[in-house]
């Protein structure tokens, strides 16, 4: 178990969702204790990803405008620290994108719907931007998306010359916070 008093950590988009839906009482207790010491820290890319998501939900179900708007406002009201994408993070992200141009896993699909290659690529690039923010800020990244973040950690470790003075990328899976 990771000491909740330790930190700060950068919470990926997937980590926020994990605490809200899958963390259960142990996850909630961990986050409560963590927030007693640290503000929840996210990348500006997570905010962009999330606000885009609220917008897409509204497009698919305009009848829910009132409730979705209320939840969107509540999300924004509870934002802690938002780390903007600065030049060093952009440079690190560009290096990762050059080294890992293709997403490590195929587009998501279910029996009724499929993610386009273009959407999968943009999601992959969002994850690279978030990882680069954590790398440059030297803050461990808490995530629930090992499939995308582990390859990034691996490339930073394998080719350190492309990331001078940076690294390693410290990753923490949500589930390991409470075990």
């Amino acid at each position: 178990m990771i000491d909740p008093a330790s930190g700060p950590y950068l919470f990926d988009t997937s980590a926020e969702s994990w605490f809200g839906r899958f963390g259960g009482p142990p996850g909630a207790a961990w986050l409560r204790r963590h927030v007693e010491r640290h503000k929840v820290t996210v990348s500006s890319i997570t905010v962009a990803e999330r606000i885009r998501g609220f917008g897409r939900v509204l497009q698919t179900d305009p009848a829910r405008r009132g409730s979705v708007e209320r939840l969107r406002r509540e999300y924004l009201a509870n934002l802690g620290v938002v780390i903007p994408l600065d030049a060093p993070a952009a440079i690190a992200a560009g290096e990762i994108m050059a080294l890992l141009p293709d997403p490590p896993t195929p587009p998501r699909r279910s029996h009724r719907a499929v993610e386009s290659r273009q959407e999968r690529l943009s999601r992959w690039r969002f994850d690279i931007l978030i990882a680069a923010t954590a790398l440059v800020s030297r803050i461990p990244l808490v995530h629930n998306n090992a499939a995308d973040f582990e390859p990034i950690r691996g490339i930073v470790e394998r080719i350190p010359s492309r990331f001078p003075t940076l690294g390693p990328l410290d990753l923490i899976r949500c589930s390991t916070l409470i075990i």
Partner: peptide
């Protein structure tokens, strides 16, 4: 916030857009 959405909507909120 995140308990108010269906599984499909949560995919959208997590950045997974499927058609």
């Amino acid at each position: 916030i995140f308990g108010s959405f269906s599984e499909e909507e949560m995919l959208l909120l997590d950045g997974v857009v499927m058609e």
